[in-house]
């Protein structure tokens, strides 16, 4: 007796078998593989230059974008700085920019600005102006936030508009008839705001799911084509053939191998391919089929695909 692995290892280690000629032809046809090394200089330089160019382009674009956004900030700063330097009229300048923002955000910044202004006044009086200049960021912070707040509040308003719009739209759907709804998006026709109930919404959903099922049922293909067959004369799937689900005419089926050699051709829908070519049994492999026919509507149709021969 012998361990089964050893039995196989003895026979199947370090063996050789010459491969078919076409493998080398395929490798040799790949220019990138064999000429790769001679072209290397050019390819390598391209390899580095392309990313470098992309990085430079990104850098240029970002610089342009930044320089565009900078003036805005500078304008904001310009609005503020006089306010700080002229402590006599701070309220007249700041509330203008704040007034767009929410009530809550207004209070705290103005307070802080006010306090900073007060601090500034007291500190200039005591002669600590240099120290404050270094901490200039303080008065800027609250006001820089404000323009952002104002921008953010706008989209919020839009969202709320959309919401109110949706509330009107949804109940309108059930009013459409089933026949018109078919496969078309429900056209929103705004109605009165009174109609608002969850029951109506669920009805809408049910209708949609019913549509999907029905459309799937309609799409039974003209032909049922198998993807594999096993010609080993065991009475199961010994031939490759198709089954027509609807009446068709002008049927033509061709089978090719991977190199494009035609192996089989028939115009009889009941005929099948037995996996032979010129009396020779073909090996396990994938093959291609092309089937053309005329459907019941008189349209010419072509179906292509892969089939696997299993032995």
């Amino acid at each position: 007796m012998k361990e089964i692995g050893e039995l196989f290892k003895e026979k199947l280690t370090d063996q050789q078998e010459p491969p078919p000629l076409q493998v080398w032809e395929k490798i040799a046809a790949d220019d990138n593989v064999l000429k790769y090394n001679s072209k290397q200089g050019l390819q390598q330089s391209l390899f580095y230059i392309l990313p470098a160019m992309i990085i430079v382009a990104i850098a240029v674009i970002s610089i342009v974008l930044l320089s565009n956004s900078n003036p805005l900030k500078q304008n904001d700063m310009a609005k503020i700085t006089p306010a700080v330097e002229n402590p006599a009229t701070p309220e007249t300048v700041i509330p203008d920019s704040i007034s767009k923002a929410d009530d809550q955000t207004i209070t705290s910044p103005t307070e802080s600005v006010q306090s900073v202004v007060n601090q500034y006044q007291t500190e200039t009086q005591t002669g600590h102006a240099n120290h404050l200049r270094s901490s200039n960021a303080k008065p800027v912070v609250p006001v820089i936030i404000m323009p952002f707040k104002a921008e953010v509040s706008q989209p919020e308003a839009e969202v709320s508009k959309e919401n109110s719009y949706k509330e009107i739209v949804i109940p309108a759907a059930p009013s459409n008839e089933k026949t018109t709804v078919k496969k078309k998006p429900i056209t929103p026709t705004p109605k009165t705001e009174e109609v608002k109930s969850q029951n109506l919404e669920t009805d809408d959903v049910e209708e949609k799911s019913w549509e999907i099922v029905s459309s799937d049922r309609e799409e039974v293909p003209d032909l049922s084509i198998p993807d594999a067959f096993s010609p080993n004369a065991d009475g199961l799937n010994d031939e490759f053939g198709v089954v027509a689900n609807r009446p068709i005419t002008d049927f033509n089926m061709m089978v090719y191998d991977r190199t494009g050699q035609q192996l089989f051709q028939t115009r009889d829908i009941n005929a099948g391919w037995n996996g032979e070519y010129k009396g020779q049994l073909l090996p396990t492999n994938s093959y291609l089929y092309i089937i053309s026919y005329k459907n019941s509507g008189g349209e010419n149709k072509i179906q292509k695909g892969m089939l696997i021969l299993v032995r």
């Binding site: 199947l12 370090d14 063996q15 050789q16 078998e17 010459p18 491969p19 078919p20 076409q22 493998v23 080398w24 395929k26 490798i27 790949d30 593989v33 991977r258 090996p283 396990t284 492999n285 994938s286």
Partner: peptide, 28 residues
């Protein structure tokens, strides 16, 4: 070396066509 490698590829594959594809990939 193709002989050695083709034998290995054949051991690992069901059909000759698959073995040829593997051999090609290996040599590339």
């Amino acid at each position: 070396f193709a002989g050695d490698l083709y034998f290995i590829c054949k051991r690992y594959s069901h059909s000759d066509a698959d073995a040829e594809d593997l051999l090609q990939d290996a040599f590339i």
